[in-house]
Write a protein that binds this DNA or RNA. Structure first.
Length: 278
DNA sequence: CGGGGCTCCTGTGCGC
DNA sequence: TGCGCACAGGAGCCCC
């Protein structure tokens, strides 16, 4: 589910709702979403509820950040909780239901609930989130001024992988997932299976502009709700009403009227228009 | 480096 | 209505 626009929406919501609050209690209903760092930098899911609580209870929420698809809850002592929602994770301030995996309670008001049907999501504690390998190894933020045509052109140079695959590689550009990769490639008129290193400067320019546009537009529409995505207030997003190709296989292209096709590239399905995308 | 295949999980939607 | 299968926003790992 959540790609950059969805995580950004949640981040902005939480920034309005929670700073200043103190975490007084945590209900760990499913400890498997609590992770630590294994020696190779990946997650391991054997963090005890007790050690998690010990790290977090009593902390003052100070700020929220987003880096790629990671949401960072920073405390006043600079330590942080880092969340990744993967496919079905939700972070919602609401009355807890039986589906919550972790619930954070404050002195007053509704608690912050983490739900995640498929349990791919993770929450981990960090003493210095900016130095976490998983944060540090991320590529450029596509909505920053530093995401330029020259930078992307350089990253794609000599790469023989397909452009769609590289857009999903978080080490190159952070925060893009399958929805926005498909939408941006359509807007840029680029075939998803085009060899990345063969994109012309003009194509890279169109791609950079298209990525910024689809991500900004989606933030404005509060994210894409297919199934499970909700903002921090528990509301669905509206981006799905504006999608042009994602999930539209078999329908007509808004540009040329031709049929939207779908193919699998590196294990991920991508919808595209064979006429409009070269 | 590229990509196929598999894994972690659960739910939904489709064809029969 | 039921069953089995494909597929779903992500991403890491092994292997060729």
């Amino acid at each position: 589910m959540p790609e950059l626009p969805e995580v950004e929406t949640i981040k902005r919501d939480l920034e309005k709702l929670l700073p200043g609050k103190i975490i007084r209690q945590i209900e760990v209903k499913d400890p498997t979403v609590l992770t630590g760092i294994s020696p190779n930098g990946g997650p391991f899911r054997k963090v005890s509820a007790d050690s998690f609580k010990k790290n977090v209870i009593g902390k003052h929420l100070s700020r929220f950040h987003r880096r790629g698809k990671y949401l960072i809850m920073e405390f006043s002592d600079q330590t942080a909780l880092i969340f990744h929602l993967r496919m079905t994770g939700q972070l919602v301030v609401r009355q807890p239901s039986s589906r919550e995996r972790i619930v954070f309670y404050f002195d007053e008001g509704l608690p912050l609930c983490f739900a995640d049907t498929r349990r791919f999501g993770e929450i981990f504690f960090s003493c210095d989130w900016k130095k976490e390998p998983r944060i540090n190894s991320l590529g450029v933020e596509p909505l920053n001024g530093s995401f330029t045509v020259n930078l992307l052109k350089e990253k794609l140079k000599d790469r023989s992988a397909k452009i769609h695959s590289l857009l999903l590689d978080q080490r190159i550009v952070a925060g893009i997932g399958n929805i926005y990769a498909a939408e941006a490639l359509f807007l840029a008129g680029i075939r998803p299976n085009k060899t990345a290193g063969r994109l012309s400067k003009m194509e890279v320019e169109k791609l950079v502009n298209a990525l910024k546009k689809v991500l900004n537009d989606s933030i404005e529409h509060r994210g894409y709700t297919m199934n499970s995505y909700l903002d921090a207030n528990g509301q669905k997003g509206n981006t799905q009403e504006f999608a042009l190709v994602y999930g539209k296989q078999g329908e007509s292209c808004v540009n040329c009227g031709g049929k939207i096709l779908r193919k699998v590239i590196s294990g991920r399905g991508v919808a595209y228009c064979a006429v409009c995308q070269k």
